[in-house]
Design a protein around this nucleic acid. Structure first.
Lengths: 122, 122
DNA sequence: TGCGTACTTGCACCATAATGCAAATATACA
DNA sequence: TGTATATTTGCATTATGGTGCAAGTACGCA
């Protein structure tokens, strides 16, 4: 199969390789903010998360809302404070789905020893 | 635990949330090129992969070498042609490791019903 | 109602990165 | 050795995106 033929062939990986999601995770500042939120485990205010980074609070606000648009975190407003929480379930599900979708395309000869004859990542 | 405290606490997720990897996957053109390579399943030349996209061949060349630097694909040169292959095993392993690392940080109360009391993604 | 706090938005600036074209490099083949 | 092919690199252009500051909005509280 040539790349052109492959391009015409629809697979789960097509939807999962979403540039928007990866773009959300591609900035060092956002990565750090997300890392703090992930490790924190609880709902945090914009100000609290902002203390992890040496950037303006407006920058933190923008980054968090971008992460929310990408489906990585969720926000809830109570009064004038906004709390952000990581959507653990969705993130885990997406990452594993990507792995599965890639593995599905992996040719059998790629890595011997795997149950499916490929990838050996299971 | 506050975000600041969480930031000081080292977890596997810290190394796995690598902005460089995600940056490699964050461009639509690169995403399409990678998708073709993933679905193709075999080693493809720069020219062949380039036929999937309406961009200059020099652009394709640069994108593929960037994907290689990010550890997503591997290249091999034979004569004057360069072949690119997806590193299926590594990609799968990384994505699953990210999922595992995120799950590890997920608080127990997040999602009931899961074996670990969280995430429900297993 | 007025003030302070939490966050967001507008704007300008700067850095990075994507793109196409042309030229260069590397290699196969006659 | 000369020519054609495959890929890469230099360069200029353009687009995108991150940042800080200042101002605006929303809301709680006295």
């Amino acid at each position: 199969m040539t790349p052109v033929q492959a391009a015409a062939c629809c697979r789960p990986i097509d939807d999962l390789l979403d540039p928007e999601l990866f773009k959300a995770l591609s900035d060092p500042t956002r990565s750090r903010l997300l890392g703090c939120l992930v490790k924190c485990g609880c709902a945090c205010t914009v100000s609290d998360v902002g203390e992890c980074c040496a950037v303006d609070l407006s920058v933190v606000s923008r980054h968090l809302s971008l992460l929310e648009r990408a489906g990585v975190v969720q926000s809830s407003k109570t009064g004038r404070t906004v709390h952000y929480v990581v959507d653990y379930a969705r993130l885990c599900r997406t990452m594993r789905a990507i792995a599965d979708a890639i593995e599905q395309c992996c040719p059998a000869e790629q890595l011997p020893g795997c149950a499916r004859g490929c990838c050996g990542a299971r």
